[in-house]
Write a protein that binds this DNA or RNA. Sequence first.
DNA 1: CATTATACTGTATAAATATATAGTATAATT
DNA 2: AATTATACTATATATTTATACAGTATAATG
Lengths: 204, 204
Amino acid sequence: MKDITPQQQKVLDCIQVYINKTGFPPTRADICRELGFKSPNSAETHLRALEKKGFISIESGASRGISINNPEITHLENEYPIVGLVAAGSPTLASENVEKVLNCPKGFFGSDFDYFLRVRGLSMKDAGIMEDDLIAVKKTQEIKNGDIVVARIEDEVTVKYFQRSAPNIIHLKPANEEFSDIEVNLEETELYIEGKSVGLIREN
Amino acid sequence: MKDITPQQQKVLDCIQVYINKTGFPPTRADICRELGFKSPNSAETHLRALEKKGFISIESGASRGISINNPEITHLENEYPIVGLVAAGSPTLASENVEKVLNCPKGFFGSDFDYFLRVRGLSMKDAGIMEDDLIAVKKTQEIKNGDIVVARIEDEVTVKYFQRSAPNIIHLKPANEEFSDIEVNLEETELYIEGKSVGLIREN
DNA sequence: CATTATACTGTATAAATATATAGTATAATT
DNA sequence: AATTATACTATATATTTATACAGTATAATG
């Protein structure tokens, strides 16, 4: 299946929502109304593009003859490793620490991400991050103050709020009164940011 | 719902089969072809009878505007609707409230589930459920004390811990000190359990 | 630079479709 | 005996709808 463009995704979503709402697929005019197009041909061309790329099927001649093609599951692309936060000293992403893999559609959390990290402890409790939750981690160094980051301090890995207080001073702040801030002086201590949290999954 | 006649049952089955086969409802002519009628009005009168008895809804003027009335929220495989919690007084799980759909592998949360509910408010904050989180809801009446349930009290829908304190007394307990317990006397107040939470997704 | 894909507006029309009206016939209620 | 619901045929028509054709514009590609 070829790549879908943002507009085509919008149209595809619109069709799905319309079917969920009404029980039957939209007409070209319905799509125009929902998405603000002024010509039925705008919908038509998008539909033909979606059909060509394999996302939908169109029954020729039939009114509302649109049906969504169920995409195949189990793409290796969509298999993300679940990494367990293990005892200090181990390199976090070593394969020994991969609990299992989880099938998850690409772009599930809006942003891209690289792996799931299983959370230990309640230091981010007030941010709604509980023990055993899975954090979707994006490997990046583009961190803003307030981001929830996966940080490694000399082999110990933690999840905390990130705050740069001075050029060389980073505060890693928990979201739980019972825990205290970690102050890292970059001149004394080695700090490595593994990435930041872009989403969360909890399995009850 | 009134009694259905054998012929009407045939027509209803025909509609269901047609939707399953093609993804969209039949026209009058389609029904005639399937069931061997020679006049579109044969289908029309059956449809009107089925509508009158509440088995189907017909969108006037729209082509293929037939939908089968079951209060269930239906969805394609792996496409789960996201239902928004709207203002009190509205029937919350009505299909009008479907924000969009989310592709999610089956069995993602171990247990099966039926739809996502977008959480409003912070009444379950200490359970790690924050505003705008998506709760994976399984429609079931098998509820144990301590389960997180989606409960409806006279048109108002909330997410709370479930606790049966006496045969006729249910406590709906928030996970936030700033909110107070809701005590429901089943003899006085109508309580409907929409389902229970089996998982959670947060998009940062 | 020419070509192709995307993303639209605007207009037109043949085909698809819902739906009304006019009948016929049978069985079940009132 | 009269009314009502069911179960159809047959025909007609206004509306809905898909879809083609003619354009404009922009970005990407070879």
